[in-house]
């Protein structure tokens, strides 16, 4: 069982004392509930019985060395991968399935797409659409998928570009932007669908060191605005600054799930201590 390393039932109880600046934050009802999720690629078991709950406005950082299953977990939540067992509920959907008379039926492509609209995803390699301009990247899904009026969506897209600090780039093509700028556009593109959860898959790993902070600043702003976020990252500074919980994955299991203070100063798992010592020795 992967949950026995979890701390107290109320992991946020001491947060107000230790981090008064964030003490005002109130977490709402669960938005993502992951139960006993399993996933294998062939013989390679990438996720073994993973369970966790993320509440509204909560920011959870997932770390772990490569191959620990953290990116796969994120991709399973967004149904970019199908799961082999367990349950993922996100933004009110039973992801990837429909329950009829106690039986689970896998959803069809267009039904999965409908669920995915409520989740935003940011990728390591940005994956902006290179053939259209920045503003069209942001407007594509709201106008073409939701069929909303262009003028209204364009106003929102411009507001989003201003929010990520790139108001002057609306007519640029992705190739004309730096990595950090592209990633900020990618965040704006995801936000344009007004998602209930934002998933970040190593959003700064492909960036030049000097542009990492401009992306992290946008993410921190987002967390202050109350966005529910699951962030796979090695940026421990971000974890300290913005996370409500830090999770360590190892060998496809969750081995530590604690508030940042506890995670960094008094980790319960041997794996966490090893992980932290390697991060610090960089």
């Amino acid at each position: 069982m992967s949950m026995d390393t979890q701390p107290t039932p109320q992991p946020h109880a001491e947060a107000p004392q230790t981090r008064p600046a964030r003490g005002a934050k109130t977490l709402g009802e669960p938005v993502v509930i992951i139960e006993n999720v399993r996933k294998a690629f062939g013989d390679n078991e990438v996720l073994r019985d993973v369970s966790m709950t993320i509440r509204k406005s909560e920011v959870v950082v997932i770390c772990g060395r490569s191959g620990s299953g953290k990116s796969t977990l994120l991709r399973c939540i967004d149904q970019l991968e199908t799961i082999d067992g367990g349950t993922i509920r996100a933004a009110g959907h039973l992801m990837g399935f429909r329950e009829t008379g106690g039986r689970r039926v896998p959803l069809r492509d267009h039904e999965v797409a409908r669920q995915q609209r409520d989740l935003g995803m940011v990728f390591q390699n940005f994956n902006l659409f290179p053939h259209i301009s920045v503003i069209e990247n942001i407007m594509l899904a709201p106008t073409r998928i939701l069929g909303r009026p262009r003028a209204e969506v364009k106003d929102e897209a411009r507001a989003l570009l201003a929010r990520v600090g790139l108001p002057e780039k609306e007519n640029a093509y992705p190739r004309q932007l730096s990595g950090g700028q592209q990633q900020r556009v990618a965040i704006a593109r995801a936000l344009a669908m007004k998602p209930k959860v934002m998933l970040f898959d190593e959003p700064t790993s492909a960036l030049d060191p000097e542009t990492v902070s401009e992306v992290l600043d946008v993410m921190i702003d987002l967390s202050h605005a109350g966005m529910t976020m699951i962030v796979v990252t090695h940026e421990m500074g971000f974890a300290r600054a913005a996370a409500d919980r830090v999770v360590l994955m190892h060998g496809g299991e969750i081995v530590e799930d604690a508030p940042p203070d506890q995670f960094f100063t008094a980790p319960k798992s041997e794996h966490t201590r090893t992980f932290l010592s390697k991060m610090l020795s960089h």
């Binding site: 995915q116 609209r117 990728f123 998928i145 995801a190």
Partner: peptide, 27 residues
Amino acid sequence: VDKGQDDAARSVGMRWTQRMRFVILPQ
């Protein structure tokens, strides 16, 4: 066309026909 393009198109909620029409075929 890079596989990541299909991921990105899925992640904003496009069904197969929309991914083809708006993202994959234009590229």
